[in-house]
Each structure stands twice: as structure tokens, then as C-alpha cells.
Design a binder for these strands. Structure first.
Lengths: 160, 160
DNA sequence: TATTGTTATACTCTATAACTATA
DNA sequence: TATAGTTATAGAGTATAACAATA
């Protein structure tokens, strides 16, 4: 009978690799984003807001898997630079509707253009096709799940 | 003449997606790793040490893209739990050779086994084949480049 | 009473710089 | 003089809890 070598290997997970690669990308990106007055977490937020025009802060926090309070500070930065706008929801005046401004969209496009060099360097071991595949898988994984769970919900095993 | 729609799209980058997905994975992983006395960054270090048996702290810092000083604290945690060992290099007594202990290897395997559920949840939008592809691409990207650059080196544009 | 956004505070992770020892 | 590891300190990023406005 043939051996089953796969069973003898530890079950290697993507988590640690994902952590490591994200860190490399973030460190390289920081210096590129600095002249644009942005930090990596700002870019993540802007990217989400582009795809989802008009989000409440709460919904944004869920998508980013950050606390509401953390998002407040993040949006303050972006609003101070007029990259996003907050307006009260007419239906529910407790809510703020957050929207990317034209200026914000332009800044984001500029940042993504500048980040091409960073991606080239960090993903230098991947060819063009592999990079495209990676992007598609990341997009599918990130948007497909749509986990509306914050850290607290995860820890408490709530269904969310 | 046919239009070139691709040119009209902003050049979307993987960086933000990578950040977001890594964050989701990390948040979920934390609660699973807690009973094992580990944190996500410990797992990243253990994973590297398994593949590269006998590394100096400096080399480990380069791979993890962390400062040497940060690695010291990280290894202190792991050594206190006897998951890694430090011994002086005979050739150069300034160096510490870091090695995964048997106990450390067992703990890592245990953690990776426990993290299967986390990966199932965070990558629920991906089927088995897609997850395997993602793992392979991440592994290739992370190990292929072998960027021996720390944050300082990146910022200063040194060749490293 | 529950929810949205906000503020104030504390904690974790990390980088920077100064120190020791070896080279 | 340069390098490996360590220590001490400061900064960024985040979560938690308490608060105000609204539902």
C-alpha cells in the first residue's frame, strides 16, 4: 500500500504567511504614501469606501474589523484633508453617512499608481499571471465573506 | 477601434486587501491561540524557525522585517516557555543561534491544527483548490524574495 | 432600552537610540 | 571601527468603557 506522506506533514496554515507578507507590503508602502499624507490604514479605508459608496461608520467598522471608536479617529484624519465627507442620515439621525469625495478618489488613484513599484518589489517572486491570481483570490476572500463581526463579537462566539 | 477599458480603471493594488485579510485572520486567530499561550507574532516566528533551523537573531529579524530589538522580546517569550533555545555561536561569540525545540515544534503543530477552523471561517469564500493556490502563492511570495531588509534599510533606499 | 457616534484612557506592538560584548 | 544582542524609552495603533444624541 502506498504511503500517505501528506498525513505526516504538519497542517501548514496561510495565516502566518499572510501576516508576514502584509507586514512587508505595509512597511514598503509607508514611505511611498508619506508624501501623499496617507498611512496604510487610510488606504484600506479609502479602498473600501470606493467600492461601497455611502457607508455608515458602523458598517465601515465591521468591514474593516475595527472598533467604531477607532474608525472615528481614522475618518477624522481623512475628513481634515477633505478626502471623505460625513453627513447625517435623514432616515436615522444617529447615523453618519460617509462618502468618498472627488478629491479622495483622486488621491486614492494617485496612491495606487505610486504603489505599483512597491508591489513589484514585494511580489518580485511572482510573475504577472500569479499576481493577478493572488489579487483575485484576495478580493474574493475579503469581499466574499462580508464578515459583519467586530473583535468583541468574535471573542464572545456570537453568531453575527 | 476597440476601447481599452482597462486603462480607464484605477490600478487596484493587493496591498489593502492583504492588510484587511491579514487583520481578519489575526483577530480570529488570537482567541484560538490564547489557550496555547501564543500570540500571532509568536506563530509567525515559530513558522520561520521551523523552515530555517538554526538562525541568528539578526537573520530572523530580517526575515520577519522587524527590528533586532523587537525580536529580542519575542524570543524571550518563546524561550520562557521553552519553545526555542538560544546558544552562543562557537564561530562568532557575539551571535545567538536560535533553534526550535521539540516542545516548540509540537506546540506549533498543535496551533496549526487548531487554526484550521479559523482558516475555514476567514477563507470561507474560497474552495479547497483556491485555498491551496493562495497558500502556494503566499509561500512563493514570502520565501522567494528573501528580502534581507529591515525598516531602516527600506526608508534609506539602501540596496540591502 | 438599544444604537450611533464620540471622547478619554490604557494596553500592545514596534522602532529608535544608547549600552555591552565581541570581532 | 563595526557588528550582535540587549535595555530603556517613545510613538503609533488599537480596544475598552463611559457619555451624548437619537431611535
Amino acid at each position: 500500500m502506498a504511503s500517505l506522506p501528506v498525513l505526516n506533514q504538519p497542517p501548514r496554515r496561510s495565516g502566518a504567511l499572510l501576516d508576514n507578507l502584509a507586514r512587508r507590503m505595509r512597511l514598503h508602502a509607508e514611505s511611498v504614501l508619506e508624501p501623499l499624507g496617507l498611512r496604510p490604514r487610510h488606504l484600506v479605508a479609502l479602498t473600501v469606501l470606493r467600492d461601497r459608496d455611502g457607508s455608515t461608520q458602523q458598517a465601515l467598522a465591521s468591514t474593516l474589523m475595527m472598533d467604531r471608536a477607532t474608525v472615528v479617529g481614522l475618518l477624522n484624519d481623512l475628513e481634515a484633508d477633505a478626502l471623505i465627507e460625513r453627513r447625517r442620515s435623514p432616515e436615522d439621525r444617529r447615523r453618519h453617512i460617509v462618502q468618498l469625495t472627488d478629491r479622495g478618489a483622486r488621491r486614492l488613484a494617485k496612491a495606487e499608481f505610486a504603489l505599483a513599484a512597491v508591489e513589484d518589489e514585494v511580489l518580485s517572486a511572482l510573475d504577472t499571471g500569479q499576481r493577478a491570481t493572488l489579487y483575485e483570490l484576495l478580493l474574493l476572500a475579503a469581499s466574499g465573506t462580508a464578515q459583519e463581526c467586530g473583535p468583541a463579537a468574535i471573542a464572545s462566539d456570537s453568531p453575527c
